[in-house]
Amino acid sequence: MKLAEVVADEFGRVQEVVHEVVEGLGAEQLVVSPAPGANTIAWLIWHLARVQDDHIADLMGTEQIWTAQGWLDRFGLPFPAADIGYGHRPEDVEAVRVDSADLLTGYYDAVHEVTTAWAADLDEAALDRIVDDAWDPPVTLGVRLVSVLSDDLQHAGQAAYLRGLVLRDT
């Protein structure tokens, strides 16, 4: 298996979970919080898509899908364009509301498409390229990819667990 195929498979698994989590849920179910101040499904899926979009765009040296394809306006959230959810307070989490799950999956799918198209040209030598020298040791492309996938999968798993809680009570 080639590196590009592994990366595409990994991000494909994130995409599968994103769709499974939100499928059939209404707008109110997407914003159920299991406890005061806790993340919602809508916030978790939005955040994981924003992180992936932000980090992959940075690796590609391109504008994020969030702004380039108008998702910022479609979501209409009260955050700056560059906001990806890090450091959000409970009131910020509550502000992430969508009319339907289709908005969340549409945005994630757009990010996924760009991610996998970019990854199709990856080879093993690319993994050692330094992409962020603000850290000690500097961050390589390989480490950044692992970081994005780890973050995505953790949040997707949290959203899947939350879906179970939401549906249990219905």
Score class of each variant (00 low, 15 high):
24 G>T: 10
12 G>D: 10
66 W>T: 00
55 H>M: 13
133 D>E: 12
84 I>P: 06
13 R>A: 13
92 D>C: 00
113 E>N: 08
105 T>D: 11
81 A>D: 14
74 R>H: 09
42 A>R: 06
84 I>C: 11
127 L>C: 00
83 D>Q: 14
61 G>P: 12
93 V>K: 09
40 T>G: 03
111 V>P: 07
148 V>D: 06
76 G>V: 06
58 D>Y: 13
79 F>E: 05
91 E>G: 05
66 W>Q: 05
48 L>W: 05
62 T>D: 09
5 E>H: 11
40 T>F: 00
103 L>K: 11
165 L>W: 10
142 G>E: 04
36 P>K: 14
76 G>S: 04
109 D>F: 06
73 D>T: 15
133 D>W: 00
128 D>Y: 09
123 D>C: 14
124 E>N: 13
76 G>W: 07
40 T>N: 02
69 Q>M: 09
166 V>N: 01
32 V>W: 12
18 V>A: 08
14 V>R: 10
62 T>V: 12
147 S>T: 15
108 Y>I: 11
26 G>P: 03
75 F>I: 03
132 D>T: 05
131 V>G: 04
70 G>F: 04
155 H>L: 04
26 G>K: 00
84 I>S: 14
20 E>H: 14
9 D>S: 14
145 L>M: 05
33 S>T: 12
122 L>D: 08
145 L>G: 05
136 D>Y: 11
57 A>R: 05
20 E>M: 13
20 E>C: 12
103 L>S: 03
152 D>W: 01
102 D>W: 07
134 A>E: 15
82 A>F: 14
67 T>P: 10
109 D>S: 15
168 R>I: 08
144 R>A: 12
127 L>D: 03
136 D>W: 09
6 V>R: 12
32 V>H: 14
124 E>Q: 11
167 L>V: 15
86 Y>L: 13
53 D>L: 02
142 G>N: 10
47 H>Q: 08
148 V>E: 01
122 L>H: 10
81 A>T: 01
77 L>V: 07
149 L>R: 11
95 A>C: 07
127 L>M: 04
161 Y>W: 15
69 Q>S: 10
7 V>E: 04
7 V>Q: 08
108 Y>T: 05
21 V>Y: 05
75 F>L: 04
24 G>V: 10
87 G>C: 06
151 D>L: 07
47 H>G: 09
166 V>M: 01
89 R>D: 12
129 R>V: 13
72 L>Y: 15
105 T>W: 08
118 W>L: 09
3 L>C: 00
57 A>H: 03
68 A>F: 08
95 A>H: 02
51 V>L: 04
93 V>H: 08
165 L>M: 15
28 E>W: 03
124 E>G: 13
49 A>V: 00
61 G>C: 04
49 A>P: 06
107 Y>D: 02
84 I>T: 15
39 N>F: 04
162 L>G: 09
120 A>C: 07
94 E>L: 15
58 D>G: 11
32 V>E: 11
63 E>C: 03
96 V>S: 00
39 N>D: 11
139 V>E: 07
61 G>Y: 07
170 T>E: 15
9 D>A: 15
89 R>N: 05
78 P>I: 02
73 D>M: 13
96 V>W: 03
71 W>N: 02
44 L>H: 01
